[in-house]
Design a protein around this nucleic acid. Structure first.
Length: 541
DNA sequence: TTAGGGTTAG
């Protein structure tokens, strides 16, 4: 600025003088005309503001920079303060930072942490010359919000755009693969990491262990675990959880003991993994021990998840009385729906209908609009043969317009995912698939398979009841996988978004035997490894 | 000097 010829802005400040109201107007003018970052102008403004006794004006007048916005946006993201964050976003545009890529990336993160993926994606698309950081933030944004497939798409777009990935790209993408069960892509990423001789940080190492564990290749996960230079609590927890998820409870406990001897101290999440592993393998004594040492040795106060796991463990083992006792003796406060769901699961498993109905009704009273509780109640009624009650629950659901989640199964062949809903007809090879499935059902029936008709009663929609069992998505997906790989020995891998039903579980056991193929199904919560007519879950699901 | 990361389960 030429001090001999004051600019109009400078003049307007002089004109305003030490008067708060006039200074506010002058400041607004600076902002609007884009001079709010001019140090001489701001200094003059500050001097006059102090003279006017209007110091609070000052903080608002401090010069803004991209640093200000990234710092504040990050703070908002950490606090999930979306309202303040949105205000910051507006300010950044008004003050001329609307296309700053640092600011835009930090806002992208803010919106994705607050679950607003649509806005995050718009910001991402608006960034010119996106840095690798922006790409990574978008991939992990989708992944963290449960939209792993979208994250994978972004990774593929990134490859197509020839952006050079860094280790964080791989960490985020591996996490997306783990969530989506995209083993093929996970392996591809692993190949890149290895061939580029990338430094395997503890983050990247944990991501690899986690990917293999959650994609159903536990031994490969363990090989990575053993090969890592550095392991932290997350690495250990991923591996233990991996064992638990696959029904290898003893391995999980063994690793947990090793961790206690020579690893980092376990945390809350480690204990959830350990307790769940015990619950799914019938290791009640080991679970009790773990729960006790959690408080006594590690000073960790059990949370509702831990209580749930304990109840779940007792329940699965058929110790319903102990489960109820545990709730009343140990759980502080009123037990919430999570705990009752665990009890209900046990009632269903061990055919304790009276307690089951009581608990289900209690759950519906707690959350009347939650469709899954109605489904559970109807399952209990169906199991106990009270068909008129099943019908009643069904009618309630229709009246309240409660829909249960639509199930689907995925199978990945040659890097392409094929999706099957129940009775799926849109696949180009539909006719062949159904024909193959029919033959398969014929052969497993000859081997002794009898459909579990009670499962069909769980289906609440009218159209689903018509021969529904026969054409569940998982059966179609498995049939497709088998049909497309006759003569091969590689396992068939299917991912399902809900829990597998009893009938499909039985049918796939038979399929694994008559086709002599290993079939791996990942359902909403666990893995089922079917091999020569047996499943790794040992019916503990 | 600014922006991005790995874990549980129902």
């Amino acid at each position: 600025m030429d001090s001999h010829h004051p600019s109009p802005e400078y003049s307007s400040l002089l004109l305003a003088g030490p008067r708060a109201g006039a200074l506010k107007q002058a400041h607004a003018r600076l902002v609007v005309t884009g001079h709010s970052r001019s140090l001489p102008l701001i200094t003059k403004l500050a001097t006059l503001a102090v003279a006017a006794g209007a110091a609070p004006l000052l903080s608002a007048a401090l010069p803004f920079s991209s640093f200000t916005f990234t710092a504040v946006a990050k703070a908002c993201a950490d606090l999930s303060a979306i309202r303040t964050g949105t205000a910051i976003h507006t300010h950044s545009i008004l003050l001329g930072f609307g296309s700053d890529r640092f600011v835009l990336t930090s806002l992208l993160v803010l919106y994705s942490k607050c679950g607003q993926l649509g806005v995050a994606r718009k910001l991402f698309d608006s960034i010119r010359d996106r840095s690798v950081v922006a790409w990574n933030a978008m991939i992990s944004g989708y992944e963290q919000n449960g939209l792993a497939e979208r994250g994978i798409e972004v990774y593929k777009e990134m490859q197509a755009a020839k952006v050079v990935p860094d280790s964080m790209t791989f960490v985020a993408t591996l996490s997306a693969c783990a969530q989506a069960g995209a083993l093929d892509l996970g392996r591809e990423v692993e190949k890149r990491i290895v061939s580029e001789r990338m430094d395997i940080s503890v983050f990247l190492g944990s991501a690899l262990v986690n990917m293999y564990a959650r994609c159903g290749v536990v031994d490969k996960a363990r090989r990575w675990f053993d090969a890592l230079q550095e392991r932290n609590v997350v690495t250990w927890t991923s591996m233990i959880a991996g064992y638990g998820m696959h029904g290898h409870g003893h391995e999980a406990i063994k690793l947990f003991h090793l961790m206690r001897r020579e690893g980092p101290p376990p945390n809350h999440i480690t204990f959830i993994a350990v307790l769940s592993a015990c619950a799914h393998s019938g290791l009640v004594m080991e679970g009790r021990d773990a729960f006790a040492c959690m408080k006594r040795i590690y000073g960790l106060v059990p949370r509702v998840e831990h209580y749930c796991s304990m109840v779940d463990m007792f329940g699965r083992a058929g110790l319903l009385d102990e489960a109820m006792q545990f709730i009343s003796d140990y759980m502080p406060g009123e037990p919430g729906p999570e705990v009752w769901t665990a009890v209900l699961g046990a009632c269903k498993m061990h055919k304790n209908f009276n307690l089951g109905v009581e608990v289900a009704e209690r759950l519906i009273a707690l959350e009347p609009e939650n469709p899954s509780y109605h489904v559970l109640l109807s399952n209990i009624y169906a199991l106990s043969g009270k068909m008129h009650h099943v019908e009643k629950v069904r009618n309630t659901m229709i009246k309240r317009r409660l829909k249960k989640q639509i199930g689907f199964s995925l199978i990945e062949l040659g890097g392409i995912s094929h999706l099957f809903r129940m009775g799926e007809m849109s696949h180009p090879q539909t006719t062949e698939i159904y024909q193959y499935l029919e033959e398969l059902i014929h052969r497993i029936s000859a081997a002794g398979y009898i459909p579990e008709t009670e499962s069909v009663l769980h289906e609440l929609e009218e159209e689903e009841r018509e021969g529904a069992l026969r054409y569940h998505g998982e059966k179609l997906a498995v049939a497709y996988g088998l049909m497309m790989s006759v003569g091969s020995t590689t396992p068939i891998r299917v991912i399902k978004n809900l829990r597998i039903c009893g009938d499909c579980h039985l049918a796939i056991k038979f399929m694994s035997a008559v086709e002599n193929r290993e079939i791996v199904v990942r359902d909403k919560h666990r893995f089922h490894h079917f091999k020569v007519g047996k499943c790794s879950c040992l019916e503990y699901w």
